[in-house]
Design a protein around this nucleic acid. Structure first.
Lengths: 281, 281
DNA sequence: GCATGCCTTCCATTCAGCGAAAGTAACTCG
DNA sequence: CGAGTTACTTTCGCTGAATGGAAGGCATGC
C-alpha cells in the first residue's frame, strides 16, 4: 500500500471491503477491535476506514459503541436488480401463491454454490423455517436449490458434486449418483421436491423461473411433511414461475418496471448538517 | 491520494463510496463512463475501482456492459439492524394489519430529513402508491413522516421547517404555522393523518413506534380518500406500533431475535473459482 | 474513412495511507 | 487505591500504492 509496511499488494479498496466482510448473520454488531481482528487489518487502519464508512453511513455506531451495517449500505443494496427488478416483478405472483397456500413462499437465485433467498413470504400459520431474506442455504438440500441446480450445466453440477456436501438431516441426499438422478427427474417433471432434506418435518416443492438465460431464479413452497402432496402443490408454483419468467422476458429492456413516476430519485443528501440521530441522552 | 495530481485531500475510501453514490433509483444501470462522470472520478481511477468492486460483487456487470449494484452489496445491506431487527420484529404486526385492512401498510424510519420506507406490504387490491422499500419521501407530506416528526425535538422540527418543503399536491401543508399545529394535534391524538397531501386521491393514517429512544419508526396505512375514516383506522395501527415498540424494548440486548439456529452463518466464500454466472451466450 | 464515444492499459510522479508507538479512558481485581 | 487489562484514539515520518494523462483498441454512425 501507500505507506509503511505489512502485507504488500493489498489495496485500500480491498481493505474497505474487508470491513464489510467482517459482518455476517452471526456477527451483526462488532466492536472496532473485533472488526480489526476479523478483517485482518491493523487497529489504526481499521479505525480510520471505519470512521470514513461511518461518516458515509455505510456503518453505524450504536449507543454501546458497537458498529453495525448502516442505513446507507442498506439503501444502496436495495438498488440491486435483485430487488428492483426480479423481486419487484415476482412479488405479485408470490403473493397470490401465498394467499392460495398460506405456506412459506420463497424466491431464490443461485449465488456461487448456494441458493440465496431473495424474498420470503410467511404468515403465522406457516411452518417456521431457517430461510431468511438475504440468507443462503445449500442447493442440494432445498427445493429452490434443486430447482436451480437441475437447469444448470452438467459441468456446474459436477463442480457442486465434487465439493463436500452439508448434511443437515439424515434424509439429505449427498450421494452424487442419487443426486444426479434426482436432478434428471426434476427436469423431466418440471419441478423439484424435497422431503425433510433440510429440516425434519418439512417438505418443499419448487419450480425454476426459466428465461433465455436459463434458470435465473426459483419459486418454492415449504410445508409440513404430513400435509404434502407434491403433485397437487406443483401446478400453482409452476404457474407463478412461468408468469415471472414471462414478465422478465417482456420487460428485458426496462431496468425498473413500475417506477415510472420516480419520486425520490433525487440525489442522496450527503452528511452536511443533517443530524443522523438527535442525541436524546 | 497516494499518487498523481488533482483534487487533493480526497481519500481512496471516499472515491470508492462515490461510486456507490453514482447509483440511485433513477440510475440503476450505468456505464463505466457514466459512473466516472457522476462520481467525479477520472476514467482511469473509476475503471480500477469499479473492477475491484466488481470482483467483490458489490457491483455486477450485465451482458450489455452496464454496471449495477451487485449481489454482495445487497447481501451486506440486509445485515443492517433495520432489516435484521426492526423489520424482523415488525413484520408479524404489519402482516396482521395488512390482513385486517387489505390496504398498503408501511414501516418507515427517519433518515436525515426524509421518511425512509423500511417495509411495504401491498396486495392487488391496495391503492397503487409511490412508496417503495428503500425509498424516501418527504416527512411533512406523508403519514409515517408526520408521525415521526411529531415526536422529534422542537429544534429538529424547526430545522425541517426552515428548509424549502416539497409540494407534491395542492393539499400539501407547507406553511410552518399550520404544520406546527398539525404536529401538535398528531401528538395529542396519538396518530397522524394525511389527506391527499402526497398523492391526490389517497389518505393515510400512521402511528409512531415509541421506545425510550423516542419515535424510532412509524407504522402507517394508505387508503383511497373516499373510504377513509381515520378514527376507525387508527386503533389497529396504534396497536401494531405499540406491539412493535414493546418487542423492541423487550429484546433490546438481543441483536437478532429469531435466528438462534443460524444456519448459513458461515463466512462468505470469496470469488476464487466460484463462477458467478455461467456464460450461456 | 473519419469522427465519436466507450473501454482498457501503461507509466512516471507523488502524496495519501501505513503501522508503531504513545496517549486516553473505562474497568477489574487484589 | 494502585496496578493491570482491554479498548479505543491520535500522532508521525516513511514510502509504495494510487493517480490521471496519454495512447491504443474497438465498436457505431454518418
Amino acid at each position: 500500500m501507500a505507506g509503511n509496511t505489512s502485507e504488500s499488494g493489498r489495496t485500500v479498496a480491498s481493505r474497505l471491503l474487508a470491513i464489510f466482510d467482517a459482518f455476517d448473520i452471526g456477527h451483526l454488531r462488532l466492536s472496532l477491535s473485533e472488526i480489526s481482528r476479523r478483517s485482518g487489518l491493523s487497529l489504526a487502519t481499521t479505525h480510520r476506514l471505519v470512521a470514513e464508512l461511518t461518516a458515509w453511513r455505510g456503518l453505524q455506531r450504536d449507543a454501546d459503541g458497537l458498529y453495525s451495517i448502516g442505513l446507507r449500505a442498506w439503501e444502496v443494496g436495495l438498488l440491486s436488480p435483485l430487488h428492483t427488478r426480479l423481486r419487484e416483478i415476482a412479488l405479485p405472483y408470490l403473493q397470490s401463491l401465498y394467499e392460495a397456500s398460506r405456506e412459506n413462499v420463497h424466491l431464490a437465485v443461485r449465488d456461487g454454490f448456494d441458493a440465496m433467498y431473495v424474498e420470503k413470504l410467511a404468515g403465522h400459520r406457516s411452518v417456521p423455517i431457517v430461510s431468511r431474506t438475504g440468507g443462503r442455504l445449500p442447493m442440494h438440500a432445498t427445493g429452490v436449490g434443486k430447482a436451480l441446480l437441475a437447469w444448470e450445466s452438467r459441468a456446474f453440477v459436477d463442480a457442486v458434486l465434487a465439493r463436500p456436501l452439508d448434511r443437515p438431516t439424515s434424509y439429505t441426499i449427498t450421494e452424487p449418483g442419487r443426486l444426479q438422478r434426482e436432478l434428471t427427474d426434476t427436469r423431466e417433471r418440471g419441478y423439484a421436491v424435497t422431503r425433510e432434506e433440510m429440516t425434519l418435518g418439512t417438505c418443499s416443492v419448487a419450480a425454476p423461473v426459466l428465461t433465455a438465460e436459463g434458470a435465473v431464479a426459483a419459486v418454492g413452497v415449504v410445508v409440513h411433511s404430513v400435509r404434502v402432496d407434491p403433485a397437487k402443490l406443483a401446478p400453482p408454483i409452476r404457474l407463478a414461475a412461468e408468469g415471472i419468467a414471462a414478465r422478465l422476458e417482456a420487460t428485458r429492456d426496462d431496468p425498473h418496471p413500475g417506477y415510472e413516476h420516480d419520486f425520490g430519485a433525487a440525489p442522496v443528501r450527503r452528511a452536511a448538517g443533517v443530524p443522523d440521530r438527535v442525541d436524546r441522552r
